[in-house]
């Protein structure tokens, strides 16, 4: 079965990629498997200057999920370009660079630097990190701000821009339409949901940042619902993510309306999860009677449309 996927600016061998922040800059996972196997690599968020991030504890397990509040720790865009990205050039796998910042100017600067770097094939605009005081989510919860930022980054970059949407909003469709209108080439969704866990002995929040982003299988139904809603109103492709642990989950994301699928938290439990899913995917699709990826994408709502048009005639 042909697993290749064409997305704006990207030709993927298969629809599977690790999600930003769950894969570092690839080096550690390359000790477990050949990164050539991946559809794409999405690297950890880059900011203009180096960021240390939040104090520990930064992670806490929850039922079928986890909270994290890393706080966008990264060495800064210049070091990422000089010390991290060259390592990924040896792989025949497109790189999507995740861009974060506190101000529109910072996003623009980071995006333009990454755009001039050979080996970066697309940008993922992180407007949805819930774990930093400035930037990130403030852009992801205000459709006007998100549109302004998308427009500015599009102007500063010649690479396709995928905007990563936050689920922490009451109207995800409005956000999606707003960034599409502003020129986004694609969407990544969903980022983590804001959550909290308390320490029973001390009585206070377990994470030093108090709140963290909930990820893992616990959030999958939220992701499926949001992709189902958004894919029906936008004309740009969606990279779906949120609690993917197996090939059947990938199928569900495709049916909801995603064109490609990112695997996040599951990488922590099983570092080989991405190649394992890629290997299982053709068999899983055919087990459910599908012969191609295309026929799956958005089938959850296209199928219903087809049926209702049949019943009308």
């Amino acid at each position: 079965m042909d697993l290749s996927v064409k997305l704006p600016g990207l030709t993927l061998k298969n629809p599977i990629m690790p999600a930003s922040g769950c894969f570092g800059f690839g080096r550690e996972f390359s000790e477990f498997y050949d990164l050539d196997k991946l559809g794409a690599i999405v690297i950890k968020a880059a900011t203009k200057e180096r960021r240390y991030g939040n104090q520990t504890p930064r992670v806490a397990e929850t039922s079928s999920g986890m909270l994290n509040a890393i706080g966008l720790q990264n060495p800064g865009v210049d070091k990422i370009i000089s010390q991290e990205l060259p390592f990924l050039e040896r792989f025949d796998t497109p790189v999507i660079a995740n861009v974060a910042g506190s101000t529109v100017e910072e996003y623009i600067e980071v995006a333009s630097k990454l755009s001039e770097t050979p080996g970066v094939h697309a940008l993922e605009l992180n407007i949805s990190c819930p774990n930093v005081k400035e930037g990130g989510i403030q852009f992801g919860t205000d459709p006007e701000l998100a549109a302004t930022l998308t427009r500015s980054v599009k102007r500063a970059s010649n690479l396709p821009v995928y905007v990563k949407l936050s689920p922490n909003t009451s109207d995800i469709k409005r956000m999606a339409l707003s960034v599409e209108e502003a020129g986004a080439d694609g969407l990544s969704m969903i980022n983590t949901l804001v959550g909290m866990q308390l320490n029973l002995q001390k009585g206070d929040p377990l994470l030093s940042n108090k709140t963290g982003g909930l990820s893992g299988p616990a959030i999958k139904p939220v992701a499926i619902r949001m992709i189902y809603e958004v894919s029906q109103v936008v004309n740009i492709p969606i990279i779906g993510m949120g609690g993917v642990t197996c090939a059947e989950d990938v199928l569900e994301f495709l049916l909801a309306g995603a064109s490609a699928v990112a695997v996040g938290t599951a990488n922590f439990r099983n570092p080989l999860i991405c190649p394992e899913i890629i290997e299982e995917l053709p068999q899983t699709l055919s087990n459910y009677g599908y012969n191609s990826l295309e026929e799956c994408v958005g089938r959850s709502w296209k199928h219903v449309e087809e049926q209702s048009s049949v019943s009308r005639t």
Binding site: N68, I70, N267
Partner: peptide
């Protein structure tokens, strides 16, 4: 988190 150096937890 990951225990291999990728997640910065």
């Amino acid at each position: 988190g990951c225990g291999i150096g990728a997640c910065f937890a």
